[in-house]
Simulated scan of single mutants.
Amino acid sequence: MTHVIITGGSSGIGLALASLYAVRGARLSLIARSRDPLELAARKLVAKYGARAEDIHIETADVAREEAIDSAIGRCVEALGPCDVLVTSAGVVEPAPFEDMSSAAFRRQMETNFSGTVHAVRAVYPDMARRRTGHIVMISSGSGLIGIYGYTSYCASKFALRGFAEALRSEARCHGVGVSVSFPPDTETPQFEREIAERPREASVVMGAVRPWSAEAVARKIVKGVEGKRFEIYFGLTLFLLGRFGPAVRPLVDWWFDRAIARSRGR
């Protein structure tokens, strides 16, 4: 039976992915910072998606702390067996213009979104390589394909994930381990609701024109991509073009963004 470990598994895309894997009969380990949402998620997976309580394990840990996430994943493996699929969905976003963003906020996003993913991967990768099986799924963002006003730290962390995923893919394939990186657009999650309240007006002008996806739709596309052993998983034509033809397309997108921002400022 497949054992799927999901960081950030108590809500949003992580929980949506857990729901899909629960229907497929997988064992599920969910990791997040707070226990109450994890317990609620576990009950939902049993009541709504037919998972067995004994096939669900929950752990509280902050992915930004390497020792904490390493220990948490170790306990998941002890409870449900070796990790077959790792999904790194834990993330944080705190939008603000760079001059207004504190060093702590900048560092928090980098440590959670990028380093947190690296910590989780490091906890499972050696065993996957030894067993010559397994798949690692990193959740980047559409903001990992193009810079967005007010998202300097978030974009940096998500861009870094792509570079990490590309390099790791080359190494992992030598050991029979698969790697995927996905670039979701704005997605309807509890975190997105908080983000919208803090999003700078200039960012809303360019990002608000795109309707957000549901977490369930994003999760379905990710699972389909993993099953197809795809490395890059895109959502919609614009993100596909940015991902595949970024150097050619990005100047046009930047031009449009700059004009929209200037209009929003009355220039």
Results as ranks from 00 to 15, higher is better:
Glu227Trp: 07
Gly228Ile: 02
Ala53Arg: 15
Leu237Thr: 05
Pro185Leu: 11
Tyr49Ala: 05
Lys48Trp: 10
Gly163Thr: 08
Ile261Leu: 10
Asp55Ile: 00
Val85Gln: 08
Leu38Gly: 08
Arg27Ile: 00
Val118Gly: 02
Phe257Tyr: 14
Leu30Met: 04
Val93Phe: 14
Val177Lys: 12
Glu66Ile: 00
Val177Thr: 12
Ala209Phe: 14
Ala248Gly: 00
Leu38Pro: 09
His119Asn: 09
Val137Arg: 09
Met207Leu: 15
Thr133Pro: 02
Pro82Val: 00
Ser170Gly: 12
Arg199Thr: 13
Ala156Pro: 09
Ala123Asp: 03
Arg194Cys: 13
Ser153Cys: 10
Asp84Leu: 00
Pro247Cys: 07
Ile261Tyr: 12
Ala68Phe: 02
Tyr49Ile: 01
Met101His: 08
Phe164Ala: 14
Arg267Gln: 09
Val124Trp: 01
Gly74Leu: 00
Gly147Phe: 12
Ala203Ser: 15
Arg162Thr: 13
Phe231Val: 04
Ile6Gln: 06
Ile139Arg: 09
Gly228Val: 00
Ala53Ile: 11
Glu99Asp: 14
Ile146Asp: 06
Glu166Phe: 14
Val223Ser: 01
Gly163Arg: 09
Gly228Tyr: 06
Val226Gly: 07
Val181Glu: 09
Trp255His: 09
Ser170Trp: 01
Arg122Gln: 11
Cys76Gly: 05
Ile6Tyr: 06
Ile261Lys: 08
Phe231His: 11
Ala248Ile: 01
Gln191Trp: 13
Gly147Asp: 14
Val92Asp: 05
Gly81Met: 02
Gly225Phe: 07
Tyr49Asn: 07
Gly116Ser: 03
Glu59Gly: 02
Phe245His: 07
Val63Leu: 06
Glu54Cys: 12
Glu232Tyr: 14
Arg27Asn: 01
Arg162Tyr: 14
Asp55Pro: 02
Phe183Thr: 06
Leu237Ser: 05
Leu40Thr: 14
Phe240Trp: 12
Ala64Gln: 01
Val124Thr: 00
Pro200Tyr: 15
Asp258Met: 12
Ala156Phe: 10
Val249Met: 05
Lys48Ser: 14
Asp62Glu: 06
Glu216Phe: 03
Arg27Pro: 01
Arg35Asp: 14
Trp213Gly: 01
Asp70Ser: 03
Gly243Gln: 07
Arg173Asn: 02
Val205Arg: 15
Met207Arg: 15
Arg259Val: 12
Lys158Ala: 09
Arg230Ala: 07
Ser29Met: 02
Leu20Pro: 02
His3Trp: 01
Glu99Ile: 11
Pro82Lys: 03
Pro126Phe: 05
